Simulated scan of single mutants.
Amino acid sequence: MATSAVDSFLPEALQFRPGAPLVDIGANLTHESFQRDLGDVIARAKAANVATLIVTGTDIEHAEHAVELAKQTPGIYATAGIHPHDASGWNSDVARQLKALHQQPEVVAVGECGLDFNRNFSTPHEQERAFEAQLALAAESGLPLFLHERDAGQRMREMLHSWRDDISQAVIHCFTADRDTLHGYLDLDLHIGLTGWICDERRGHHLRSVVKDIPLERLMVETDCPYLLPRNLPAKLKGRRHEPALLPWIVREIAQWHDVTETELGEATTRTAQRFFRLDAEA
């Protein structure tokens, strides 16, 4: 069934299996677009040597769903947090539920949490309140942080600087900002997650000149699926939904601009992700 699913959905030109097993550190597999064929999506990921999937929990409901998926499927793990878009709903009950989720063995990071001053679906004050509380939960649990930031780099760095001695590791997922912001995060000893944004010549071209500034031991890769379908694909998909099986194409693009081979980049980012999320190397 897995091979049939791969063959029927992905055009042959997109069926790309790299030599090194990969870790997709940001897959939104609880998104409604995956409800119909999630099993096939996971099978295609395995066929593409995307051996490990970190499923993002952006609120209580999606985090609980991610944990259940991780319990059912080897090689899948979950994060649990409140996205800045949903920060207005932060309260003591949400904090209690998150704390319980962070004690589940399937949960490997606190998040997705952070600041988004681009859309401001929650006010900046609400976002900072929820983020501060989740920084405290990360410090208490010892789990690493899976962070979201848009147009809030300075404030994000200020808040992280205040907590840096108390939290363990943190990754800025789906990094899209400029060189100065990047180096501010690296100076805080943070990790960087890159997506298919770098494959977009319209808005991601600036990332190509800064990729080499990211040490391989600080770099991880992700799809952020179903969003951010790479624009470097050699064939069209049915629909516009992104999925983990396409991560090798993102790795190929990053490797080109980092001036390393795809295998080197794949092996390095997998080692980094396994260390960051404290995964078994065989996972």
Rank of each mutant, 00 (worst) to 15 (best):
S162M: 13
R179V: 11
D166L: 11
G184K: 07
R164G: 05
D165G: 14
Q169V: 03
I192L: 00
H191P: 05
D166N: 15
H161A: 14
D189F: 00
Y185R: 00
D187C: 01
W163F: 14
I167D: 08
D187F: 01
I192M: 01
I167G: 08
D187V: 02
A177D: 13
H173E: 08
T176C: 12
S162G: 09
D180M: 07
D180W: 04
V171M: 11
A177V: 11
Q169T: 12
S162T: 13
I192G: 02
L182V: 05
Q169R: 14
C174L: 01
G184Y: 00
H191L: 11
H173N: 03
D180A: 12
I172C: 08
S162F: 09
L188V: 04
T176A: 14
L182W: 09
D165C: 06
S168F: 04
I192S: 00
Y185K: 00
F175N: 10
Q169H: 15
V171F: 10
Y185M: 01
L190A: 08
D165M: 05
S168P: 03
Q169W: 10
W163N: 04
I167F: 13
S162H: 14
D166F: 12
H183I: 14
I167Q: 12
L182C: 01
A170W: 03
T176H: 09
R164N: 10
G193R: 04
T181G: 01
W163A: 12
A177P: 05
S168T: 12
L188Q: 05
L188G: 03
